[in-house]
Amino acid sequence: MTFAAPAQPSALAAKGPAARVRGRLRGRIIIGVLPIATAAGVLIVWEAIVRGLKISPVILPSPSQVYQKVITVLPLLVDNSVQTGGEAVLGLVLAAAVGIALGSALAYSKYFRAAVYPNLVFFQLIPKVALAPLFVIWLGIGIESRLTFTIFITFFPIAISTAVGLASIDPIYVRFSRGLTATDWQTFKHIRVPFALPAIFAGLKIGVTMAFIGVIVAEFITSQSGLGYLILFAMARTETAVVLGSIAFLCVIGIGVYGAVALLEVMIRRVWGAPYDAG
């Protein structure tokens, strides 16, 4: 990577708008390239260390060894990724429904909040991984127990963000809305929800991470397939490259789902701001 010499920015400023646009574009490209360059650098260092110290591939395979292994077991990885990704997305969607509904109820009913909220926080203090075996006892080793566990671990941040987002609205807006003879539902739809959207989506983004944790832990415990199962299976056979490959696939799916949530946020916010159509 080469960086612009210190003298360059002032020279650009003197050259007028076209040069400035080009300068800004280059700035943006550099910002886009830097993280990739950093990641590439880490992989190169990793490769060099493994080769230089002749580390056994069972302990730590080099990136190139992982890549070769991934190529040979690609169909296996893809199949298991589809299952894990699908379950994580399904779990996230269901957790979002539960979380947003619960968060709305928490924000709206004083008594419901008093009855439920302290218990919810207390409940949240239990390391939920410790509860995973219970779900196996109750729901067996199928998708039901994995999904339930995923929802269970994911809904909490979504519920809290929703409740906080709905409740933290400036009261003047509620008063304004009532002054217009708006019903509670209209105030909810046109005022509270749009104001709460950033908080709700912040919760959903945390939820993405939680959903993947939930699915992987559930697969560790119950599954006969999925990336979580594949990791355990490969570990038992000391196929460390497959473990790392599975993790790489997990990262890619995770980024994809996170990106989808971010995109959904942009779309929903745009629709809310669209001409003559606010809800």
């Binding site: 003047i172 807006y173 008063r175 304004f176 809305s177 217009l180 003879t181 708006a182 209209q186 046109h190 005022i191 749009p194 916010r269 809310w272 701001g273 001409p275 003559y276 606010a278």
Partner: peptide, 23 residues
């Protein structure tokens, strides 16, 4: 009100029409 209380995601025109939408 003392504050304008405009909806930040709506345009000026949409804000003025908001009471119409509610009613």
């Amino acid at each position: 009100y003392q504050e304008p209380v405009l909806l930040p995601w709506k345009t000026v025109l949409q804000n003025v029409l908001f009471p119409i939408q509610i009613q």
